[in-house]
Computed example of a mutant assay.
Amino acid sequence: MAETNTDEVVVAFLKHYYSTFDTNRPGMAQLYRENSMMTFEGQKFKGLQNIVNMFNSLPLPVCHHDISTVDCQPYGPPGGMLAFVTGTLNVPGQEHPLKYSEIFNLIPIQDTFYVLNAILRSNKA
């Protein structure tokens, strides 16, 4: 049962993560730290400011993430999690949603997590 509770906590964090991305892009800064790294479509961004600058420069002013699946496992320091997410990104004006896959290395901090590592790829098939 402990795993189910952990899975629920990770899913809640990821829903918060995508909601923040969709509605409050500057708020993404609270989800990363200076030691974080993000790979976005093959481009690597290291450090909080570089990651925030990347998010703020994306040409997606309005969008909505729908999570399809989340798989997670304990990873890294005690309480850390590795999460693999698949879903769709709905952008107004686009006929079809974009499918994406994303991996997160989540590190516990107080009563939540921060993103140490993330890798995102759209599934262009």
Rank of each mutant, 00 (worst) to 15 (best):
G93A: 07
I103P: 01
I119D: 03
M37D: 04
I107W: 05
E41C: 02
L58S: 11
K15P: 04
P92G: 07
G80K: 03
N53C: 11
R121T: 05
N90E: 02
P74M: 07
L14F: 09
N24K: 10
G87Y: 01
Q43G: 03
Y75W: 10
N5A: 12
L48N: 04
L98G: 00
A118Y: 00
L120Y: 00
G93L: 05
A83Q: 05
S36H: 02
Y75I: 05
A12R: 14
F113K: 12
L60H: 09
K124I: 03
F55L: 01
N56G: 09
P108N: 08
Q73L: 12
A2Y: 05
F84K: 09
Q30C: 11
F40V: 06
V9H: 11
F21G: 01
T6W: 04
K46Q: 14
P108I: 10
V11C: 09
D22H: 14
Q73R: 10
A29S: 14
T88A: 10
Y17A: 02
N24R: 12
F113I: 08
V91N: 00
G42A: 06
G79T: 14
F113D: 04
A83G: 08
L31M: 15
D22Y: 09
G42D: 05
P74V: 11
D7I: 05
V91Q: 02
L82Y: 13
I51R: 00
C63G: 09
D22A: 13
S36Q: 03
N123R: 06
P78H: 14
S19K: 09
A29I: 15
N5I: 10
Q43D: 08
F21Q: 04
P92H: 05
V115D: 00
E8G: 14
N53L: 04
P59W: 04
L31G: 06
L48R: 11
N105Y: 07
Y32I: 15
Q73K: 13
S122F: 15
N117Q: 05
Y100N: 00
G80W: 02
L106V: 06
G79W: 11
F13G: 10
Q94Y: 08
V9R: 15
F113M: 10
G27N: 07
F84Y: 09
D71P: 01
L98A: 00
Q94C: 12
A12G: 14
N5Q: 13
K46Y: 03
R33G: 08
M54E: 00
T88G: 04
E3K: 06
A83C: 13
A118K: 00
Y114T: 03
C63T: 06
N50Q: 13
L116G: 06
D71E: 09
S19N: 10
Y75L: 13
H96N: 15
N123I: 15
M38F: 13
G80Q: 11
V11Y: 05
N123W: 08
E95I: 13
M37A: 15
P92I: 01
L89E: 01
H96V: 14
V9I: 14
I103E: 03
G79N: 12
I119G: 02
A83E: 03
Y114N: 02
L14K: 07
N24C: 05
S57H: 07
N35E: 13
M38K: 03
E95W: 06
T20N: 03
T39E: 06
P77M: 14
V91W: 00
G76D: 09
N5V: 12
N56S: 12
I109C: 10
R33E: 12
